[in-house]
């Protein structure tokens, strides 16, 4: 066991201070889509035509972004005739309502105050994801993000969980298992939609195969947009659901 003890010492402390410190700089990132100014829009509507998920809707004299639907693929940025669209480099952007994701991300009020205290057990339910959201949720347990330092942990059973993290558009085959998991969750409970498929259906609108988003079957208390969301955004979403953002909300979140 001595080699493993040395291994721990070798790597040193790598864990981020977020949310007690600033958002760590992880390099260039395609965060949420920003529209520069309404006046600069050429009204060519090429962006809306290029969007694979109908996240952009052209209006008179401007364009509206539904961040819940956006895959951040950048097809609209390339299509825009005068460079009005850019990506924010911020990895954050969780929101407490679907409506809030139709505006530029901003500091969000906690949903219904602080109902759970510092220790929280999380259960994930994959309701038809591509697997990337699971990889990013799993990343929260790696030494960089280390969610246990915030009193958070994953639990194998919904009976021991306080919050559900749901990914995927809720496929027909996963609707019943999801309902069963939710039933097993003791109250008070939190449900968090993670990723574009869960927040707005994203690439999988309502069809014979899927419900097209978590809010088609139940009301989540927090939406974490992104395809997949950055682990920091998922962490932000969990803290937001807990009403613990007061201890964070760094300036970068509103930029």
């Amino acid at each position: 066991m001595i080699p493993w003890a040395l291994e721990v010492l070798r790597s040193g402390v790598v864990t981020t201070r977020f949310p007690h410190g600033p958002v760590p700089d992880t390099g260039p990132f395609r965060g949420y889509l920003k529209v520069s100014s309404a006046s600069g829009c050429a009204d060519c509507r090429r962006c809306a035509a290029a969007c694979p998920t109908a996240a952009l809707s052209a209006q008179a004299g401007g364009v509206a972004v539904d961040h819940a639907e956006c895959l951040r693929c950048g097809l609209c940025v390339t299509a825009c005739s005068n460079g009005q669209l850019t990506f924010s480099p911020s990895p954050l952007g969780a929101a407490t309502s679907r409506a809030a994701l139709r505006q530029a991300p901003s500091p969000q009020p906690a949903p219904g105050g602080r109902i759970l205290r510092r220790s929280l057990a999380l259960r994930t339910v994959d309701a038809g994801s591509c697997g990337a959201c699971e990889a990013e949720i799993q990343a929260l347990a790696n030494p960089f993000y280390d969610l246990t330092r915030l009193g958070l942990s994953f639990t194998p059973t919904p009976k021991h969980a306080d919050a559900l993290l749901v990914t995927g558009p809720v496929t027909a085959g996963m609707a019943d298992p999801l309902a069963a998991a939710l039933d097993a969750l003791p109250a008070p409970r939190l449900v968090i939609a993670v990723g574009a498929c869960a927040t707005g259906g994203g690439p999988f609108p309502p069809s014979a195969f899927s419900h097209g988003g978590l809010d088609q079957v139940l009301e989540p208390c927090v939406y974490v947009p992104g395809c997949p969301p950055h682990p920091l955004a998922i962490l932000e979403g969990i803290l937001l659901a807990l009403g613990r953002t007061g201890e964070s909300l760094p300036e970068e979140a509103s930029g």
Binding site: A50, P52, L71, C73, C130, P169, T171, A172, M174, C227
Partner: peptide, 28 residues
């Protein structure tokens, strides 16, 4: 149980819009 109707989504899709979808077939 995870069937999302992926192949169906590609039918009659313009080539340019297909790439972001192809990246979601298996996200990792």
């Amino acid at each position: 149980m995870k069937m999302r109707g992926v192949e169906k989504r590609f039918e009659n899709l313009p080539l340019k819009k297909a790439l972001p979808l192809a990246e979601l077939v298996s996200g990792t």
